[in-house]
Amino acid sequence: MDIVLLRKKEASKNVSWVPELPIFEQDATVLDYFIYLAGYYGIGKEEAKKKAEELFSLVGLQGREKDKLKNYSQGMKKRFALAVPLISDPNNFIFDEVLNGLDPQGIMFFRDLAVKLKKENKAILFSSHILTEVENIADKVIFIHKGKIIRQMSIEEIKNFIRTNIFRVVLGRIDGNVIKIAEKYGNPKLQGNIIFIENFNGDIPGLSSDLLNYNIIEMAKVEGNLEEVFFKLIGEQK
């Protein structure tokens, strides 16, 4: 930590931080503020203008340079927050809850960007509550609960962790016999018109022919997800 403080300026050049709610001095125009912040990277006005052109088009803000920052939407502010540190072409990115408050287009932009940066061997620390997005992007997941790291897992480990042996059948009609039929294939539980069969023996053709009279609507193996892992980890999973 002390080293980071001592070499704070150098460290800052290597990190791009996009906060959940980027806050700027609202009265400045976007280009002006960019030029100002570029000054801290040791870049003069003219060069900063060139950089702005290049980076604004990269993050999709071209044409909006003259706007005041207060007129920017959340998504645009995040794009601007991303454009600024790109001045020093950093190798590390911190996307702090970056998807919150974004429209679908914005979500897609940051998701695709993260994947692209990953391919370029950049390190991205991506915090999110939208676990499906994390699944799509991450190589390694750190679970944090109440401010503490409770587990660190690679995506492979997670896949193994969540591999279940539960089969799920949705039926159009239910009667008293249906549980008895299902018991032949594992340990069934009935929830409304859905049967969950734990320790499923894998005989899908047998199960489907036995339940033919119950109008099968849907049947599939239950896949676990990050959410389940998270709840499992914090011991709150049902």
Binding site: K9, S12, K13, P22, I23, L37, Y40, G42, S88
Partner: peptide, 13 residues
Amino acid sequence: TGALKFILARPIT
């Protein structure tokens, strides 16, 4: 407002 946070994330002490 918190605007200082973003500025301080630049290479500046």
